[in-house]
Design a protein around this nucleic acid. Structure first.
Lengths: 351, 351
DNA sequence: TTCCTTTAGTAATACGTATAACTAACCCAA
DNA sequence: TTGGGTTAGTTATACGTATTACTAAAGGAA
């Protein structure tokens, strides 16, 4: 028993003798019971085999020593991490913090923590995320993948890790524990395009990003344009960043054939960059050029940006609910479902 | 040995037979060696006691089975989580994502992941964060606490978990592994106040939040105001949110004695709310009322908000570097240091 | 041949928890 | 007085990994 008390703990290096975090063994020793009894009392509300007196003593000793359960040990033993991972391209894109908040709001009461993994929208980082998840660091995942498709993602589901994808359209049900939440991006973009046309615009350009939901939004825009007998006009820059948006706008403004009268950014961040570039070029919005976006990030309202509202908080909350259900007994067997939420066109002053 | 192959794994419930993630034992079995040999090969670059042929065989089997190390088991065994926690009031406040990015940028190459914990700026959630950290979920922490002070935080350092606080001023060195990074908030606010006075303003109000760095900023503002023979004028609303800022501004505008000519928001988010309220009231900025903020969040530039730039990315990166150093052998013994970074006044069109 | 060294590993253990299986001591009824 | 049941626990084991201490076999030198 002396071995237990002389234990030095965590790194036998030349560090200061950081006092050990007390374990159940320490409590057991101090309370004169076995470690098993301690575990029983600490975890079960009702313990038929431990009388109230002993129970109280154990709890008091635990309290006195400042006992906190060792999370890694619990994870190992129970094969549960009580953690959700949130895999997103970029936390500095204002769309995602809202999503994260929605996730957390549902996850926390269910006992789950949320861990953020940024991919930068790069394929190798997305692959790393999968690898990371396969190490058993989270019980479930909410993710936006720009590059990976179901074949690469299926490994998660097969290993018992449910995944909820933030998607840009309805996905057919599949046999695996891969669900999705989405708004109909194509229809939303179509509606926004119709609005621009209704306002009299004929030369409408769309600023796209290379990957991600931009594609689907472009489809909606393109379809409506052609339907109206107009020519879709795409400018693609790399990422969902203001810099990309500004660069694309510059290219539009420098064109020989004259500039468009309206520009539809595939995301608010792109639209913001476009607005800045337009202002820098001395154009006034919406008189000289109309600008629309997609996402309705918090700033959009302040800047008067006309945009498509995605209910990001609700999307996150719904994703979390889906995961919580999946992780209840038997939940992994159900086929993958696709949940649609409604978008809304926010008409403001930029159009 | 049949026991190992018939193992069903993770939840003996009525779930689908999710195939087990292979362990070192499985590799050992398939390669005809012991688990110890597998661990050796997988972890050490050089293994004198395992010849190249065996080594290659083990690696091939591991690859073939799709082996991924079990993170919880590693954590338990090595008492290292390879995770940093980032404890912040609210990830939707645009100041923090930049900080997180800085953190991640330094943490990732050093092998650390970053986990986000929102406190909402509420004392009980801050206490929960401490509790959570004491469960051994992270090797180090970067945090902004609005309520907890060193006495409550010391427990982390005493248990060997280094902490870097995002502070609003210099902190004297302490014996514990508690460091801080900061810009001189009082001086920054003072300088901004001087700018407002130089622009001819006499009636300058400050919108404060109840807790957090607002206090320190208010001190700088108050000192300069009094020095200049002016009367500090504080309006306090609860949180760092646009709603709070707008509410506070409304109160300022509805005052009987006439409204101030300049308003200094203790944070950009507060200033943004104030701007909106001013616009709603039909005032033009800066002609009818000047507005200044603090933080230089990304939108500030777009909206032309004059503000104090905090190098949030660098603050995060520096915090991460500090943690990485602390976690090197012997790093926990050094006294706590306070690192100052420079702020910058961003003069834009709102003042 | 004997002893020593090298090679190529293996066996055992610990990390902290949860839980299934067991048991000693006592009481009560038949 | 024997058997069964309850009370109050305990013992043992497993989760997957990392690491220390050990060893069997082969090769070489004296």
């Amino acid at each position: 028993m002396a071995t237990s008390t002389t234990r030095t703990k965590r790194g036998k290096g030349p560090d200061k003798p950081a006092p050990a975090r007390p374990t159940q063994k320490d409590i057991a020793l101090a309370a004169g019971v076995s470690q098993a009894a301690v575990s029983l009392v600490l975890n079960k509300a009702e313990t038929p085999s431990v009388p109230p007196a002993t129970r109280t003593r154990i709890l008091e000793v635990a309290e006195g020593l400042g006992y906190r359960p060792n999370h890694p040990a619990r994870m190992l033993r129970s094969a549960r991490t009580m953690t959700f991972a949130c895999v997103i391209p970029d936390i500095t894109n204002p769309f995602y913090p809202g999503l994260v908040r929605g996730l957390q709001t549902v996850a926390a009461p269910a006992g789950y923590d949320v861990l953020i993994f940024d991919t930068d929208g790069r394929p190798e980082r997305e692959a790393r995320a999968i690898d990371w998840l396969l190490q058993g660091r989270a019980d479930g995942v909410v993710a936006t993948f720009f590059h990976l498709r179901v074949p690469q993602l299926a490994v998660l589901a097969r290993k018992g890790i449910p995944l909820v994808r933030l998607e840009s359209r309805h996905k057919p049900d599949g046999p695996l524990a891969i669900d999705s939440v989405y708004i109909d991006n194509a229809e939303a973009a179509a509606e926004m395009t119709r609005l621009l046309i209704a306002r009299g615009h004929r030369r409408i350009a769309m600023i796209q990003a290379e990957f991600g939901p931009s594609q689907r939004r472009a489809q909606g825009y393109g379809a409506v344009m052609r339907e109206a007998g107009l020519v879709p006009d795409f400018v693609t820059d790399s990422a969902y960043s203001e810099e990309s948006g500004a660069r694309a706008m510059k290219r539009l403004l420098e064109r020989k054939g004259g500039r468009p009268t309206a520009v539809f950014g595939a995301s608010d961040v792109l639209a913001l960059g476009a607005m800045e570039a337009a202002r820098t070029a001395g154009l006034s919005i919406p008189d000289d050029i109309a600008i629309a976006g997609f996402d309705d990030i918090p700033v959009a309202k302040l800047l008067g940006l006309t945009t498509v509202r995605q209910p990001e908080f609700d999307l996150g909350a719904l994703a979390a609910e889906t995961l919580v259900k999946r992780l209840q007994p038997g939940g992994l067997g159900a086929p993958g479902k696709s949940h649609e939420l409604k978008f809304e066109i926010m008409k403001r002053s930029s159009v």
